[in-house]
């Protein structure tokens, strides 16, 4: 089957050698991130990092967080990724079976360019940047994570979504041999998530390929995942194999399983509680034993950037 070629990229968009060199230096800086000056009292854990390839990236100074980063160990051993089991430690223990190379990404639906693409062909065209984002889980815990990726909008625009593309759906890999958790009927596999097109095109929406300057570990959604820092974590699809542009709102996995507990928007909102627990506060993973609780911010603190997207929308009924 002939593979459709990717849209043409002007040479000006391709990284010049000198930038490449700068990135290498920045990378060296990133690996030295353990510096106590930057992260008081926190071990970064790069010494124990597995043999994941270092990435070339620049650091985006606009996306930083004042709070200390969570350690590599915390970020990679405390995960909700039900494809590998329901306990927080299961993904780190069970995700070795996931093969991320080769990896293909299918583009479908309301776009001019559709088809199946090799991931490396896609990634070649996107310069990577590091962004430090707050991550807020619907279970009322949070972390601060240095992701490496590129704007989701840059990827989506390449496929030239048509005017009828009102939503974007992200589908996770379906393969119970690689993802043993899919043998259980916990959710209707494969995992599906989705966004309104304007949410997906928002500059904060990040396509993530790495963390702490290296390729993503499998348990964090390798090789390709999104991260939407103003939404609860379950909105951020992991190990994505398909992106579909749709005219109608896609039925996503958690609202499909529990319509009363998880909504399509899932914007972080301290005033709208989960039916079984409060969302007013959250626990920061890794903080001291008695100092974890902190107030949750509207849109996880990204209201200035994203509130405009939801003007006129009742956030209580559209939770």
């Amino acid at each position: 089957m002939p593979r459709p070629s990717l849209p043409y990229i002007p040479p000006s968009e391709i990284t010049a050698e000198r930038h490449f060199q700068v990135r290498r230096e920045l990378l060296a800086g990133a690996l030295g991130l353990a510096g106590a000056a930057l992260l008081p009292g926190r071990a970064v854990g790069t010494a124990a990092a597995p043999a994941l390839a270092p990435l070339h990236f620049t650091r985006n100074a606009r996306y930083r967080v004042a709070d200390p980063l969570n350690s590599y160990e915390e970020i990679t051993t405390y995960n909700n990724f039900y494809e590998f089991g329901v306990d927080k430690t299961d993904p780190a223990a069970n995700s070795d079976s996931l093969r991320t190379r080769p990896w293909t990404l299918s583009i479908a639906g309301e776009a001019e360019v559709t088809g199946t693409f090799h991931l490396e062909d896609i990634l070649r065209q996107h310069p990577l940047e590091e962004r430090i984002y707050r991550h807020r889980c619907v279970e009322a815990w949070s972390m601060v994570i240095p992701w490496v990726g590129f704007p989701l909008a840059d990827l989506l625009k390449r496929f030239r979504p048509t005017s009828s593309a009102k939503f974007v759906e992200f589908t996770t890999l379906l393969d119970p041999r690689q993802m043993p958790g899919q043998r259980s009927g916990l959710l209707d596999w494969p995992y599906r998530e989705g966004l309104r097109i304007d949410e997906a095109m928002h500059p904060l929406a990040l396509m993530v390929v790495g963390v702490y300057g290296r390729e993503l570990p499998n348990q964090n959604g390798a090789p390709l995942r999104v991260h939407l820092p103003w939404k609860y974590g379950f909105k951020s699809g992991k190990s994505i194999v398909r992106i579909r542009f749709t005219a109608r709102r896609p039925l996503t996995s958690w609202p499909a399983a529990f319509p009363g507990e998880y909504g399509f928007y899932a914007n972080v909102n301290p005033r709208v509680d989960h039916p079984r627990w409060s969302q007013a506060t959250e626990r920061r993973i890794g903080a001291s034993l008695f100092g974890q609780r902190r107030p949750t911010e509207m849109f996880n603190g990204y209201g200035e950037q994203v509130a405009e997207l939801y003007r006129g929308l009742d956030l209580r009924s559209n939770f």
């Binding site: 627990w277 409060s278 007013a280 506060t281 626990r283 034993l289 008695f290 100092g291 974890q292 609780r293």
Partner: peptide, 15 residues
């Protein structure tokens, strides 16, 4: 009460 809720009496009572 302590580590999980940070001794927040109001939050505990509400819970």
């Amino acid at each position: 009460v302590g580590p999980f809720q940070g001794f927040d009496a109001h939050a505990i009572a509400a819970d």
